[in-house]
Amino acid sequence: MSVFLPRRPPANLKFLYPSFAGLVPLTARRHESSARRTTKRLRTKPDPSFTSSIPESQLNDHIVFNPPSSAPSPYHTPPVFLPPNDPRRQLLVQSYRHANPYEQPERRLPPTIKNHKPYEKKYHLREKEIEEIRRLRTEDPYTWSRAKLAEKYGCSPFFVGMIAPNEGKKAEELKKVEQVKEGWGRRRRYAREDRAKRREMWGRDE
């Protein structure tokens, strides 16, 4: 047998009653009941870490140290960074709790950030190729950009910029950027400046 329990008590469904029923102050009762329920719900027990070890008599006479789970402290040196003669190195290896969990064969490393490609330096370019890169870049810096040359010769764009810098093109590009920036309004400019400031805060760890 199924019992039908209405979600709302019939007293709340005003439209079912004749119009004079609205004069009856039903709302007062409703408030009282919801307040009681809310209070009951809010009366949660404190976390056991706050109270469990403290006797009742000293409950108001102690310091609670219950820090939230947070980023690791910068004062904690990772085991790889410890010098070889540091005694902590041996202790960490022997410890069950603090040993590196990824050393276990069944434990896989977490996924890398999607577009990350490990880059290996090849050191394969000789004097001849470097001369060629310089020539191409001076002849037509717009066709032979750093990225294109890097792709062609299998090196990094940074390396191309290092061996064949093109100050003229850089200055022109900067001028173009400045022109674009002058066209910005107040809001966009402020937003960009704020973004740069936030980026600086990452380096300060703020």
Binding site: A71, P72, P78, P79, V80, N100, Y102
Partner: peptide, 9 residues
Amino acid sequence: KDKLGEGSG
């Protein structure tokens, strides 16, 4: 396999 540092953002 060694973790050097951790950060959130």
